[in-house]
């Protein structure tokens, strides 16, 4: 187990190293320096700025410094917002994204699993078709369209929920639903097909012939085994929620990390772009590792460590 964990951690570090290197050199190759836009600076001032931000050092030195700093989560100061460090921006905005993300993961998981189970239990009946129509539509409607439609109907036309911002629980409902749509549909489909597999297996027949009720058989015997593919989907789920947040947060005006990233892209605020990219990557890589470990716990038949673990 320890060996497996070490190997995975090594992978993460290699991936991260790779990401940091790519982002660094991509940003170097980017057209226009950080101070190129807006007001024209006097040459002397620009020289002073470059000196202050370390842009006059040779490239390899800048790269090396960046690499060392990145591993201590020090991404340097923002180029656009004077006096703010990238890490400050991240710590300020991340909690919003975290709350929103957790909410939508909960929505996607609970409703997705429920729809999938209904579809499997009512196989080829009305319930199945309804659930699957919802699922196919959910996959086909991109999150940003879902978001605008929800915003238009519930906030603008009906006035039932707030249009934007992030102040109370009511503010989070629409964005969380919009963010959850696509993963919800995926989970429903996954759940349906694995539940169908499980319900046709022998031990379910045994349980039924023992005289157990439909409910006990479905929920106690079936669900526990059928939910495994959903557990392995949790990694991609986190990815999907995170990237979805870029647009959803912008649409709903939520000051989270996703919209911060989008703003930094539009502003060409290189240090913030690099910092958030690295931060997102760490988050993703770690959560995928956690999901793999969790999978081993949920399903004792699977030894994540491969041959070892005797």
């Amino acid at each position: 187990m320890a060996k497996y964990l070490l190997k995975r951690l090594a992978y993460i570090i290699v991936s991260l190293f790779f990401i940091i290197t790519i982002t660094f050199f991509l940003m170097q190759a980017a057209p226009g320096g950080p101070f190129a836009s807006e007001k024209k600076l006097t040459p002397a001032l620009e020289e002073q700025m470059n000196e202050a931000y370390g842009l006059n050092d040779p490239l390899y030195e800048q790269y090396f410094n960046y690499l060392v700093n990145a591993f201590t989560f020090d991404f340097g100061p923002s180029f656009k917002y004077v006096g703010q460090d990238v890490i400050e921006i991240i710590t300020r905005s991340f909690p919003y994204s975290l709350i929103l993300g957790i909410e939508s993961i909960l929505i996607a998981l609970s409703i997705g699993v429920l729809l999938g189970v209904i579809a499997a239990v009512k196989h080829n009946k009305f319930g199945d078709y309804t659930a699957m129509v919802i699922a196919v539509l959910g996959i086909s409607v991109p999150s940003f369209i879902m978001a605008t439609v929800l915003q238009y109907i519930f906030a603008i036309k009906l006035g039932a929920l707030p249009v934007a911002r992030f102040e109370s629980f009511a503010h989070t409902i629409l964005p969380a639903i919009a963010l959850a749509t696509t993963p919800l549909a995926f989970i429903a489909r996954l759940m349906r097909s694995s539940m169908l597999d499980v319900l046709n297996s022998d031990y379910i027949k045994t349980a039924k012939s023992k005289g157990l009720g439909q409910r006990v058989v479905t929920y106690k015997h079936g669900l526990r085994n059928a939910i495994l593919p959903v557990v392995s989907y949790l990694g991609p789920l986190v990815v999907s929620i995170l990237t979805g947040s870029f647009i959803i947060e912008s649409i709903f005006g939520i000051p989270g990390l996703g919209s911060e990233f989008v703003v930094s892209v539009t502003n060409r605020d290189y240090t913030v772009i690099m910092g958030t990219t690295v931060f997102f990557s760490v988050l993703l890589l770690v959560s995928i590792l956690l999901v793999d470990l969790l999978y081993g716990l949920v399903d004792p038949r699977i030894k994540v460590a491969g041959k070892g673990g005797k």
Binding site: F18, I22, T243
Partner: peptide, 21 residues
Amino acid sequence: ADVLYGVPYLLVVILLMVILP
């Protein structure tokens, strides 16, 4: 492929779109 797979897809695409014309 594994290392590239660990790199978040959309982030790379966005980064490239920022850099390239």
